[in-house]
């Protein structure tokens, strides 16, 4: 590898620190938001479109791909969800939610037009602008495709700024595949997409196996110029990270260009409840998006 140190330009815009709320009233402030559309995706997952009600607040509500918000249904519960839509649309988000508990089982039963509360956006995002001029690998397992839809939207809106873009997506079985209606649209934008399922059924015509199989195929056909100029984003269940990240590492994708989005229990989103602690830090503040170097330095991260 190139032994020469790179110059860091602290005057560059990219270096600017992230804004953080530090006023007391912000702590429990919720935007009133309306569920404008409820779209069932699979037996377990539903896509919700949610819009901030106040026009002024709507204009201000902006996020970066990879960030999450806290969605609250008064009296039912509050929980963190990844924002699964384009960052260029302000004040309106899409959330894809799996039914697992109190809040998430309640939501599919509400009517369009119901008001919910949202807090955030919270956490770190994927540094999309740093990726300009580079290749991008977007790797998702299961529900991990949900947070990836935001960087995918960014890539599509800024397609000319990116070189090769590959989506690699795997689930346990074909019925769990999410956003099947979008794959063709992504392909048309010159985004390569590989879908793989662990257990095929009769209807399944595509490949079956582990997500690392198509990843290895993609990577082994490339040269070191590609590896050094490639960003990877990995989202999925805990078991997936180790295998995928190890493989990316073997091919010498730079550690600071590999990003994972970690999931932990979260009750505040603001570094206060400690439920999301990972190693020596908080997933909600320094994450959920971490680069791989940071992950290697955090105990029990992956």
């Amino acid at each position: 590898m190139n032994p020469e140190l790179k110059f860091t330009d602290v005057a560059a815009e990219l270096y600017a620190p992230q804004k953080r709320k530090d006023d007391l009233k912000g702590f429990e402030y919720t935007y009133r938001a309306e569920i404008t559309s409820i779209y069932p995706l699979t037996e377990m997952e539903t896509l919700y479109r949610i819009q901030v009600v106040d026009p002024e607040e709507r204009r201000r509500f902006a996020f970066t791909p990879g960030q999450f918000l806290m969605l609250e249904m008064p009296g039912i519960g509050e929980a963190p969800f990844s924002i699964s839509s384009s960052p260029s649309i302000h004040g309106e988000v899409e959330l894809c939610i799996r039914k697992v508990g109190n809040l998430t089982n309640f939501l599919p039963r509400v009517k369009r037009g119901t008001h919910v509360g949202i807090r955030g956006p919270f956490g770190t995002g994927f540094p999309m602008q740093n990726m300009h001029g580079q290749n991008v690998l977007l790797i998702a397992g299961g529900l991990g495709l949900v947070p990836l839809r935001s960087p995918i939207a960014y890539v599509m809106e800024n397609r000319s700024h990116f070189r090769d873009v590959n989506i690699i997506y795997g689930t346990k079985n074909p019925s769990q595949l999410l956003f099947t209606y979008q794959y063709e649209i992504w392909r048309k934008d010159d985004i390569d997409i590989e879908i793989i399922v662990e257990k095929a059924d009769k209807s399944w015509k595509g490949p079956s196996g582990l997500i690392t199989d198509p990843l290895e195929d993609i990577l082994s056909g490339r040269d070191s110029e590609y590896y050094h100029n490639t960003y990877a984003i990995v989202c999925g269940p805990p078991v997936m990270f180790k295998f995928v990240c190890n493989m990316l590492n073997e091919f010498h994708i730079p550690m600071q260009k590999m990003f994972v989005s970690l999931e932990r229990r979260m009750h505040c989103g603001m570094g206060k409840c400690c439920r999301c602690n990972v190693g020596s830090t908080y997933t909600c503040l320094t994450g959920p998006v971490f680069d791989y170097w940071t992950v290697m330095n955090l105990k029990e991260a992956i």
């Binding site: 249904m73 008064p74 009296g75 519960g77 009750h267 206060k272 409840c273 439920r275």
Partner: peptide, 26 residues
Amino acid sequence: CYCYGVDETVDIDLKGARKTKMLHSC
């Protein structure tokens, strides 16, 4: 020790609800 959890409940008259913070332990 300050770690906590948050729970929401609906009041018995169904007209109100509350979001309650309770200290927890790791």
